[in-house]
Design a protein around this nucleic acid. Sequence first.
DNA 1: CCCATATAGTTGCATAGCTAATTACAGGAG
DNA 2: CTCCTGTAATTAGCTATGCAACTATATGGG
Lengths: 168, 168
Amino acid sequence: MVGVIDGRQAAARLVATYSCIANDMRYTAAVFDHCLYFNTSALARRLEREWSAAFEPFDLTPPQAFMLRAVIERQGLLQSELSEALSIARPTATRALDGLEAKGYVERYRSAVDGREVSILPTPKAVRLRNALNEASGAVTARLKKELGGGAFAGAVAVIRGIRSALE
Amino acid sequence: MVGVIDGRQAAARLVATYSCIANDMRYTAAVFDHCLYFNTSALARRLEREWSAAFEPFDLTPPQAFMLRAVIERQGLLQSELSEALSIARPTATRALDGLEAKGYVERYRSAVDGREVSILPTPKAVRLRNALNEASGAVTARLKKELGGGAFAGAVAVIRGIRSALE
DNA sequence: CCCATATAGTTGCATAGCTAATTACAGGAG
DNA sequence: CTCCTGTAATTAGCTATGCAACTATATGGG
């Protein structure tokens, strides 16, 4: 904390709120309106809240729930394959699986073929959650589709996936 | 670590890799292809890498750099206004500003009008970075625009921003 | 004036993500 | 066989993020 601002400066602040010295566009509301990074990160944070609420009844965070769903749908994948499927770094996969293992949802099996690899299998308790997890996620999707319009929603997902794949 | 998987099970794993019991679509490559949350989060992580490299010469992470750019472009905003402008929670803004203050890029001024509020101003050292920061970000944008096609890029940003604003 | 309520900012705690470094195993060159 | 190199997973350490709780200030009612 460095100083105190007086009333005159506070008034100047209010003007600054609604003007943009940077690009001669005055009364621009948002600073990074046209930035792909900014809008994508902000949307990701916003969506995290939606899916967080959806998985809250299972006491799972969205990353945990998506990892578990992947383990259930693709039984026996190696950790490296899971990290690739979920587009996360391998240490992140290690920790997500640590958490799910501690909760009794997954088991690790070291491969007899290659002793470095570890296969992941869901426990029966996890498999029993499968439909409920899919439905919880599907309910959020259905709600957003309704709010945003079905066509717009599918188009948006396609656009976002398209950018992802264009960046490898 | 619970057990060891044998060769036969390993073979079954490979089949599982490329089939999807969940929805009768076999040979589906990606598990959550149609999920808005999954694709958006994954894209956000990918873009974080791009912008991270862009701001690396300034020893700033993307969140730090975007906060600093907002402070420079909207001089004198309150912390609450900055957190809203950047779509982050107020504690996150507090910590981002702590870091920028420690680096000598921003100064906090407690409002004389309302002693709870704090106005943020960039230091001259920060203002001198302004063009370079904008250009660093613009260079990434330009490169991606070229890779993805200008129309597709602008359309994608519009779509993503549209979803953001539809969710308030 | 004093108290109750509200608000701005901060702090504590937890999760998730990354890179770099480490450990354990695999596989080929000599 | 031994060593060197490569790779899967883990560990260490950092940043960013959010919610909940706390502090300090403001404001309106008695």
